[in-house]
C-alpha cells in the first residue's frame, strides 16, 4: 500500500519533470578537453522557441552552411540546435547555461528578452565561448555582433508596397501579434513612418492576435465586419494566413472582388500561394533561412579566422510581389534559398 502511494507520488512528478525539462538538458556535460589545434567547431544555434516553424527553416540553413564548411575546410563544423519549446526567457537562460556546461565552442542565439539574456551571454563569453545574437538582440551583453533585420526599414518597405498597389489614399487596418512585442512594434512604427507623407491614408484600427491562428482569423473577420469599406491591411506577422481558404470569407471576398490590398510579413509557402492567387499584394521576407546560413558563416569567420564584425550586421529582407513570387515558391520546392531572388 505504502509502495503504491510512493509510486503514485513519484510517477507524476517524473512526468512533470520530464515534460518541463528543456531539450538541451538531454545532453550531458561531457568532460572533454578542448583541442588545442582546432579540428572541430561546435556551434549552439539557439532560436527563441522550438514551436515556431520559421526557426526550423533557419535550422536548415545552419545545417547546410555547416555541411559546406566541413566539406571545404580543415575544420569540422557541427550545429547543435537547442532551445526552449515555447518562447520563454527563463527557460532560454537555462538552455544557454546547459550549452555552457557542455563546453560548446560558440553560441548563436535569438534572445527572447534582451535583458534576461545579458547574464548568461556574459557568463559564456567569460568562460571563453564567443556569442553572437541574431534575429533578436541583447545589445548590453558582451556578444561580439548582432545580425538581424532592421524592422523599421522593413515596416517602411511594407508601407511602400501597400501604397504601390492601393494608391495614396484609403483606410488601412494593422494586425499584430502579442501587444508590446518589440520587433512587431518597430515594424508598425516603420509602417506608420512609411505612410506619414500621405495624409489621405489613415490607420483606422490595430487588432491583436496573441500569436494565435484562431484569434487572428476572428480578429480579421470582426474587423472586416466593423470596417466593411477597408482599403488595405498591414499584417506585422502572418498568423491568420495559416488558416485554410474559406475560413475568412469577408477578407477573401474583399481581396478578390473589391480590390482591398494586403501586405504581410514573412514568405512561407502558404503566403506565396495567396500572393500568386491575388489575395495578397506583397510580402516582406525576413530571410529566415539566412538566420542559420549566415550566422554560421559569421561565427566561423570570427572563431576560426579571427575576423572582427561591427556590432550590427544588417541581414536585409526580400520584397516579394507577383513578379518574383514564382522564384520564391521554387526555392521552397527545392528547399534551397541560396539563390538571389529576381527584383520585385
Amino acid at each position: 500500500m505504502k509502495l503504491k502511494l510512493l509510486k503514485a507520488l513519484v510517477f507524476p512528478l517524473l512526468i512533470i519533470m520530464a515534460a518541463c525539462q528543456p531539450p538541451a538538458a538531454r545532453f550531458s556535460a561531457k568532460p572533454s578537453a578542448k583541442p588545442t589545434t582546432r579540428d572541430t567547431l561546435t556551434i549552439a544555434w539557439i532560436p527563441k522557441a522550438l514551436d515556431n516553424p520559421v526557426f526550423e527553416i533557419g535550422r536548415q540553413g545552419a545545417l547546410q552552411k555547416a555541411a559546406e564548411l566541413s566539406a571545404s575546410g580543415p575544420v569540422q563544423v557541427e550545429v547543435l540546435y537547442v532551445g526552449s519549446v515555447a518562447s520563454d526567457a527563463a527557460e532560454q537562460v537555462r538552455v544557454v547555461e546547459d550549452v555552457i556546461a557542455r563546453r560548446v565552442d560558440a553560441i548563436a542565439i535569438s534572445c527572447n528578452d534582451p535583458t534576461a539574456c545579458i547574464d548568461p551571454i556574459n557568463r559564456a563569453v567569460l568562460a571563453g565561448i564567443p556569442v553572437m545574437t541574431w534575429d533578436a538582440d541583447s545589445p548590453q551583453s558582451l556578444r561580439f555582433t548582432y545580425m538581424g533585420l532592421d524592422n523599421i526599414e522593413a515596416g517602411e518597405a511594407a508601407a511602400k508596397l501597400l501604397i504601390q498597389s492601393m494608391g495614396t489614399k484609403g483606410n488601412v487596418a494593422v494586425l499584430t501579434g502579442v501587444p508590446g512585442a518589440f520587433n512587431l512594434d518597430e515594424r508598425i512604427n516603420g509602417f506608420q513612418q512609411g505612410i506619414a507623407a500621405y495624409p489621405e491614408i489613415q490607420i483606422v484600427t490595430t487588432v491583436i492576435t496573441n500569436d494565435d491562428i484562431n484569434m487572428g482569423v476572428q480578429a480579421l473577420e470582426e474587423t472586416m465586419q466593423a470596417y466593411p469599406n477597408l482599403d488595405g491591411w498591414f499584417f506585422a506577422g502572418m498568423w491568420p494566413l495559416f488558416a485554410e481558404r474559406g475560413s475568412m470569407p469577408l477578407w477573401e471576398d474583399a481581396a478578390l472582388n473589391r480590390g482591398m490590398k494586403t501586405v504581410a510579413f514573412d514568405a512561407l509557402p502558404v503566403e506565396c500561394e495567396l500572393l500568386r492567387d491575388g489575395y495578397l499584394s506583397g510580402l516582406i521576407d525576413q530571410k529566415n533561412w539566412s538566420w542559420g546560413y549566415d550566422t554560421i558563416q559569421i561565427v566561423y569567420d570570427h572563431v576560426v579566422r579571427g575576423e572582427e564584425f561591427p556590432p550590427f550586421v544588417n541581414s536585409g529582407f526580400n520584397i516579394i510581389t507577383s513578379t518574383n513570387v514564382d522564384a520564391m515558391l521554387h526555392a521552397w520546392e527545392m528547399n534551397d534559398f541560396s539563390q538571389v531572388l529576381p527584383d520585385p
Binding site: 507524476p12 515534460a19 516553424p53 491562428i213
Partner: peptide, 25 residues
Amino acid sequence: IVTLGTMSIARGITFGLTGGWPVRS
C-alpha cells in the same frame, strides 16, 4: 497537478509529431 502534467505531455506530443509545423490542406 495531474492535469498540469498531462497538459505538458499532450502539448509536447503535438510538437513532437509536427516539429512545430502546422498540418494543412
